[in-house]
């Protein structure tokens, strides 16, 4: 589904990603963990070119994302992105937040998009918020809406950039529940997170990104119970 080949990213003189290669299969749930500053968020943001890679190639199925001739807007329609700070459109109601892209990009008629949005809102138990504005919602509600906004585009893959890191502890559960349900529905997901319990439960593979490379990758059982590299052992001893 997504193929990454020798991805490198520099910010001025700092080498943040030093060559990452990885392949994500259809329906796989990949959880990326690592210390702060390891490059895990940059890796995720490179996948939809929110950060322009310095070198390397990224493919979504057979389309090369990093090819300058590729229409990145078309690619992004197929890849949902959920941010740490939700980034709901402050000037629009929840309904308009969800329907704006499908309608303006000509994928759905207004009525059809609204119906679809209501179904999605029901799925996350927030149908009564359709006419509210983002400022009226709690953090957990905002993040569930942000997930729904991405789903409204029927993406092939969903990317999550620390989706629960900005939430109050009592709201983390409701967002993770939505993500679990999404995982069970067969969505391909790449999740950058600090929620180790979520990784254990949902991931097919866990990646440990440190110092700009994938230092270790394994199934959740092996990853958490038998970490190989000393850095991962050290990291796990501090977060678990």
């Amino acid at each position: 589904m997504i193929t990454v080949k020798d991805l490198k990213k520099n910010f001025e003189d700092t080498e943040v990603l030093k060559g990452i290669s990885y392949e994500v299969g259809k329906g796989e749930k990949i959880v990326v963990v690592g210390p702060s500053g390891s490059g895990k968020s940059t890796f995720l943001r490179c996948l939809t070119l929110l950060e322009m890679p310095t070198s390397g190639k990224i493919f979504l199925e057979d389309q090369e994302i990093t090819d300058p001739k590729t229409d990145i807007n078309k690619i992004r329609q197929q890849m949902g992105m959920v941010f740490q700070h939700f980034n709901l459109f402050n000037n629009l109601t929840i309904m308009d937040n969800i329907t704006l892209a499908p309608v303006k990009l000509g994928l759905m008629k207004k009525e059809e998009a609204k119906e679809n949005a209501l179904q999605l809102l029901n799925r996350v138990n927030l149908p009564e918020k359709a006419d509210s504005y983002p400022a009226q919602l709690s953090g957990g509600q905002k993040q569930r809406i942000a997930i729904v906004r991405s789903l409204a585009m029927n993406p092939k893959v969903m990317l999550f950039d620390e989706p629960t890191s900005a939430l109050d502890p009592e709201m983390v559960g409701e967002v993770l529940a939505v993500m679990k349900e999404l995982a069970e529905s067969g969505m391909t997901m790449i999740v950058v997170t600090h929620e180790m319990a979520f990784a254990k439960e949902v991931a097919n593979k866990v990646l440990f990104v440190d110092q700009g490379i994938i230092m270790e990758e394994n199934t959740p059982e092996e990853f958490f119970d038998h970490p190989k590299s000393p850095r991962l052992q050290d990291f796990l001893s501090r977060v678990l």
């Binding site: 939809t48 980034n87 990009l105």
Partner: peptide, 22 residues
């Protein structure tokens, strides 16, 4: 907030659509 632009671009809106609607 630059996050507004990033979110707009992430759902596939073009630069000018993001500017105009968001």
């Amino acid at each position: 907030d630059p996050g507004q632009t990033e979110a707009g671009r992430s759902v596939g809106l073009s630069k000018s659509q993001t500017m105009l609607y968001i």
